[in-house]
């Protein structure tokens, strides 16, 4: 069968995963083909690529004849399918998503389930690549970083919730269009869109309002500016 990587075609035998195919090509046909891979089992997040326009983990995807493989979007491309994901890490420190201040809490099963799915994130950036907001706003925090933020705010042990909430107001939760592309792209079944909605509710509790509402032209001072002296 035939697959194309960035418009270059390769004939390959039937294999279990796209990663097997990429290795076969690199080791026998085209050693210059460049991609990343690690755990081979869907937990290290290295091998995310786009197949026929949709984000996939190469180590989990079973290749089909005619597949078109491209690198994931929005990160600088180093070579072929290999992108520079290091800026993704900056998003996590930018929003200060971590347990900075611990408050003693004895957690229960319901607490575990509150963040169980969110903490399955492998930082593959599939959601980031699928997000249309980044097309127009390169500073947008994007889905995985916001899921990360939610994961800490939803944890009763975290006493620095307010700081995280403060950091996700600009180019973040209110800029999401709730299109749900991130949710469809996630190989771990995480729903960043739902997490963003939760963060909006939480932000409202902390006195923030959707800035889009104040821009909708109600006129006459109905606009609420969270920084406006309240």
């Amino acid at each position: 069968m035939k697959i194309t990587v960035n418009e270059k075609s390769y004939n390959i035998e039937k294999v279990l995963t796209l990663l097997d195919a990429l290795y076969k090509i690199k080791s026998t046909q085209d050693s210059n083909l460049t991609y990343d891979a690690g755990c081979r089992s869907g937990v290290c997040g290295c091998c995310s690529v786009k197949v026929n326009g949709k984000e996939q983990l190469a180590c989990e995807y079973e290749p089909q004849d005619g597949d078109k493989i491209e690198p994931i979007k929005y990160y600088p491309i180093k070579k072929d399918l290999l992108v520079d994901k290091s800026s993704g890490y900056n998003l996590i420190s930018k929003e200060r998503a971590y347990l900075k201040l611990y408050q003693e809490s004895t957690l229960e099963k319901t607490d575990e389930s509150k963040t169980q799915i969110q903490t399955d994130c492998i930082l593959c950036s599939s959601c980031y690549s699928a997000c249309p907001v980044l097309e127009v706003d390169k500073n947008f925090l994007g889905p995985f970083a916001l899921t990360r933020a939610y994961r800490y705010t939803a944890d009763r042990r975290v006493a620095n919730e307010k700081e995280i909430v403060d950091n996700i107001q600009k180019s973040a939760i209110w800029d999401c269009t709730l299109c749900g592309e991130c949710t469809l792209a996630c190989p771990m079944g995480i729903d960043p869109k739902a997490d963003i909605l939760q963060l909006r509710n939480l932000s409202a509790k902390h006195g923030y309002m959707d800035p889009n509402l104040s821009n909708m032209g109600f006129g006459g001072g109905f606009g609420f500016d969270p920084n406006g002296g309240f």
Partner: peptide
């Protein structure tokens, strides 16, 4: 990158 390690497995 840090996520590419045996630890995550």
């Amino acid at each position: 990158i840090p996520t590419k390690c045996n630890s995550v497995m």
